[in-house]
Amino acid sequence: MKHLVALLVLCAVSIAPSLAQAKSDTLYQELGAQQGISDLMTTFVLEIAEDERVIHHFENVDIDRFHRMLSLHLCELTGGPCTYTGADMVEVHRGMAITRAEFNAVVEDLIAAMEAEGVPTATQNKLLARLAELHGEIVAR
């Protein structure tokens, strides 16, 4: 009996960290890890480029750097093995006077990109829920 308990404890101890690990990077994996996120962000940037409602905010943006920073930020936000090195969302959007409608337009561009990339609804929802938390930092008050 003692051995059985010890065995169970040992199992629990050895499984727990891997469970925590699996949980924290699940969304990252669901999005297809580094490559999946990079592809999704490419489609997303193309959606934005065709969106007359918001394109004026991106006129002087270095698209390659934008794509790289987006991918890095998303990797970090979804629990991937990355560290976002860019400025925080408040600083990035300072002075841009982003409206609520413009924020929603970009959300729609992301949804369109996820649909195009075949991201399942459940994964879409989890990503949108994480990004929705940034609303307060991005939209002008």
């Binding site: 609804t121 459940a122 929802n125 949108l128 829920a129």
Partner: peptide
Amino acid sequence: AWLAGPFERT
């Protein structure tokens, strides 16, 4: 609205 509620649905 809960974007990712039960069953990972909105």
